[in-house]
Computed example of a mutant assay.
Amino acid sequence: MLTLLRVFSLLPLRLLALIGTVGGWLTWAFSGRYRARLSNNLRQAGLYSKATRNAAIAAAGQALAILPKIWLRPNEEVKRRIVCNSLDVIDKAEREGKGIIYLVPHIGCFEAAASLLASRKPLMAMYRLPHKPYLNEVLRLGRLREGMTVAPATLGGVRELARALKRGETVAILPDQAPSGGEGIWVDFFGKPAYTITLPAKLWRMSGAAIVITEPRLDALRGRYLVDFHRFVPPESDDPEVFTLAMNKALEDLIRRMPDQYLWGYHRYKHPAGAPEPPGGLDKHREGLV
């Protein structure tokens, strides 16, 4: 697999995007569960249209196909393809000296955003072991790039993230990834309860770090990555539910601006093992889910 990925990393970005588009449509054609989940999630968000659906199918395939280009090529090469018009947001956050918590949702070329951030300050990302062991080496290789380290999704890993922030460094968290049971709470995401990670709220309370949301997009036609940043101002509350709900609302606003780039096929509304029942009970929550 590594050999195949290295070959893919040498291909032009536009060609990879084309291959990804074909792969996205093949997945749509042969996976009824994927078709249903992508469409249902779009409808839940009130963003369904045939044009948006079709663009999201292509974008999901492209996001996967370009990963070798980001993970296995030199960081400087990746950076040359990045266009960013909001570095002032990061500059201001860095001057505050309390570290930065980057919220990196599953949208566009989110791995390219990590390459840009790691080139400025040491970046530590939360890392969850994949269910398929053979993918572990691939993911670790991709995420142990220059300037990047990973912390396991364990209590020890959380302590590592906290220490990094205390040193004034930066951490990256996927805020829309369903956490394991006991690591989140049920709060609305596009009007439906979604089990959502509370780690950003906890780290912010411990460190007072700045919180920045990334907005990464793939511009396949021009062969480049568009990355922007937005400061997230947490609500004045010590309640993690208040923080987490506000975080989800900020993510919703971002996704509404670029619905074609979001990975709608992700099982965002699943009930993780060990998590409490969602509001209204499991039967009601499972309505419309696949």
Rank of each mutant, 00 (worst) to 15 (best):
P279T: 10
C84Q: 10
Y102K: 00
F190G: 03
G157D: 07
P276H: 14
F189M: 03
R143L: 12
A151W: 13
A55F: 02
A194P: 10
K69Q: 12
Y134G: 01
R35C: 13
A220D: 11
H230F: 10
N85F: 15
R205T: 01
R120C: 02
K98C: 04
D228Q: 09
L174F: 13
R145F: 02
V78I: 07
L16P: 07
A93G: 06
I255T: 00
A273L: 03
R43V: 01
H285D: 05
E183W: 08
L226A: 11
V150H: 08
E137I: 01
T52E: 04
R217I: 03
K50G: 08
V290C: 11
L117H: 06
N75H: 11
V138K: 13
I57F: 03
G23F: 05
K50N: 08
S237D: 08
T170S: 11
R224L: 15
A58I: 00
I90H: 11
T198V: 15
G181R: 01
R222N: 15
L245Q: 15
C84E: 10
L203T: 00
P234G: 05
A250E: 14
I213N: 06
V187K: 03
I66R: 00
A29H: 13
I19C: 14
R257F: 01
W186C: 02
Q177T: 04
R33P: 09
I197T: 14
L87N: 13
G99K: 00
E183S: 10
N41C: 11
I173G: 01
G274R: 01
N248V: 04
D88M: 07
V104Y: 04
R217W: 05
E241M: 05
L10E: 12
M206E: 10
D239F: 07
V78Y: 03
K284Q: 15
I90D: 06
G61N: 08
A275C: 09
Y269V: 01
A36I: 08
T214Y: 14
S31T: 13
L67V: 07
L218A: 09
A65D: 08
R231W: 02
L38A: 07
N54Q: 09
A113Q: 01
L4G: 07
P74W: 13
R163T: 03
D228C: 03
I101D: 00
E160Q: 11
W264C: 03
G156S: 08
P130Q: 09
R37L: 12
R167C: 01
S31C: 12
I173Q: 03
P200K: 04
L221Y: 13
Y127S: 01
R140P: 02
V227P: 10
P74K: 13
V78A: 07
E76D: 14
V171K: 05
I197A: 09
L129M: 09
A56H: 04
V7L: 14
T21A: 13
I90S: 06
E160I: 05
D219Y: 10
R163P: 02
H285E: 10
D176S: 02
C84D: 14
A153Y: 14
G99L: 00
P122T: 05
P240K: 01
P68F: 14
L282P: 12
A60L: 06
A36S: 14
L144A: 08
A65I: 00
V227Y: 12
Y266M: 03
R286I: 12
G157Q: 12
V138T: 15
E77S: 12
A153M: 13
W186T: 03
L144W: 12
L165E: 04
V212N: 04
